[in-house]
Simulated assay, not measured.
Amino acid sequence: MDPFRFPDDLLSLQAAWLKTYRTLAHVPAGSGTAVLRRRLIRLSCRIHAHPYRSAPGRSRAGGADLRRRARARGWGTAA
């Protein structure tokens, strides 16, 4: 049985986070990373506050599974 069934919009947010993080990791230091860092913060807030994750009685567990699934679908793999 599949304990976590993530909605597509949450997977899309996670994929955008992964892609932004990967892009930030490849940008040379001192070359204007503020925009990417702010985007990561916004995406993190949206992921954290997503109705799926903030529903009463729902565990916050599954973060690693969410990231794995976003990668497995091929989302967030391109820089």
Rank of each mutant, 00 (worst) to 15 (best):
D2E: 11
D2N: 12
P3Y: 01
F6S: 01
L10H: 02
L10V: 06
L10C: 07
L11N: 03
S12T: 14
A15Q: 02
A15W: 03
A16S: 14
W17Y: 15
K19V: 05
K19S: 15
T20C: 15
T20L: 04
Y21H: 12
T23R: 15
A25P: 02
A25E: 14
P28S: 09
G30A: 07
S31K: 14
S31P: 00
G32V: 01
A34L: 11
A34C: 02
R37D: 07
R37I: 05
R38M: 10
R39H: 10
R42Y: 10
R42N: 11
R42F: 09
R42H: 11
L43P: 00
C45W: 08
R46M: 13
I47N: 05
I47M: 09
A49T: 12
A49S: 14
H50T: 07
H50G: 09
H50R: 09
P51E: 08
P51K: 08
R53N: 11
R53V: 09
S54A: 13
A55Y: 06
P56W: 03
R58Y: 03
S59P: 01
S59L: 08
S59V: 06
R60T: 11
A61Q: 13
A61N: 12
G62Y: 04
A64S: 09
A64Q: 08
A64M: 05
A64P: 01
A64T: 08
L66E: 06
R67Q: 10
R67F: 02
R67S: 07
R68T: 06
R69I: 02
R71L: 12
R71C: 00
A72P: 00
R73T: 00
G74Y: 08
G74W: 07
G74E: 08
G74D: 05
W75C: 04
W75N: 04
W75K: 02
T77W: 01
